[in-house]
């Protein structure tokens, strides 16, 4: 249905109805989300980790950095739930503080890179033409390096350390979000309600913010949950290679790398660090899969 620009009352009503429909769709989606087994599993895992990351001191009395050399490489016991590492530090405490670090890396890297990519995708998709070509060719170039290699190249230039890891993973995330946002914008920008908004006198920015944005934010959000796990994995991978967060900071990847030398005498180190990392990644992947099932009608099983 095409709008008659003269009948502004009907137009306003239609726009309002679009918003109402949108809100009720969202409620329905949320209900479906909580009925989806995958996403509930993911949410439970994520909440446990968030709790651990927020209150590590509540869960373990130990200092994650302080060395106790006479107590080194102890297997798990009542005193040290996950044993101790090569410097006698409590593994469980290091796991908890590591959760805080990994979640922060994932959150900040995806949020920063994702928002930049989202804005680029909105602009490229909505304005098209030169803006589109310039932005998207730049994204092609960023995507022509595998993620980890791009991150390594950036680290090679900037040096190691937490901030640079964040920058590297953030940049890696930009093109993924830009591409996805652009394609969703392209799908909605010729819809009737966008035309209506434009003919009723809104300028480009108003249309983008008030009419395009509410209809395109959900897809990048789903992408964000999936990207979150990739970001955490790349962060841990960089530290595993010795190119990420520097010791003695408790970082899962770095600790896994150190545990490699003790596989024979203290395999509990490698088990513990790898398991906590994997379960968190699994949680985000499960949530992402669940979200996709809920929001993508084609994927309904």
């Amino acid at each position: 249905m095409r709008y008659q620009a003269t009948d502004s009352v009907a137009l306003g009503n239609q726009l309002q109805q679009d918003e109402v429909e949108f809100a009720s769709n969202r409620r329905r989606a949320l209900r479906r989300l909580f009925r989806n087994r995958m996403s509930v599993l993911g949410l439970v895992i994520i909440f446990i980790y968030l709790f651990a990351a927020a209150f590590p001191g509540l869960l373990s009395p130990y200092d994650p950095i302080k060395q106790e050399l006479e107590n080194r490489l102890q297997p798990p016991s009542a005193k040290n739930l996950m044993g101790t590492d090569e410097f006698g530090r409590d593994v469980f405490a290091r796991v908890l503080y590591g959760a805080r670090l990994s979640i922060m890396v994932g959150l900040l890297a995806v949020a920063s890179g994702g928002s930049i990519g989202f804005v680029i995708g909105m602009l490229a998709g909505y304005f098209g033409g030169t803006v589109d070509s310039v932005f998207m060719r730049a994204m092609d170039i960023l995507l022509s390096l595998p993620g980890l290699i791009l991150a390594i190249a950036i680290i090679a230039a900037l040096g190691t350390g937490l901030t640079n890891v964040l920058i590297a993973i953030g940049i890696y995330n930009i093109p993924q979000f830009a591409r996805m946002t652009r394609s969703t914008v392209l799908a909605v920008k010729d819809e009737d309600y966008v035309l209506a908004a434009r003919t009723s006198g809104n300028n480009s920015w108003g249309v983008l913010v008030h009419h395009i944005f509410p209809n395109v934010w959900s897809a990048p959000l789903i992408l964000a949950t999936l990207r979150f796990s990739t970001a955490i994995l790349i962060g841990a991978g960089l530290s595993f290679l010795g190119l990420g967060v520097n010791p003695p900071t408790p970082e899962w990847g770095a600790m896994l790398a150190a545990s490699r030398g003790y596989l024979r005498v203290a395999p509990h180190l490698a088990f513990a660090y790898g398991l906590v990392l994997s379960v968190l990644v699994l949680g985000f992947n499960a949530l992402g899969e669940g979200l996709r099932d809920v929001f993508d009608p084609r994927a309904v099983r």
Binding site: L256, A270, G274, S278, L282, N285
Partner: peptide
């Protein structure tokens, strides 16, 4: 799901072990 969630460097360590 496990294949995409488990970090390769951990799987490697487990297989070595």
């Amino acid at each position: 799901l496990f294949g995409i969630s488990l970090p390769v460097f951990w799987i490697g360590l487990l297989l070595i072990w």
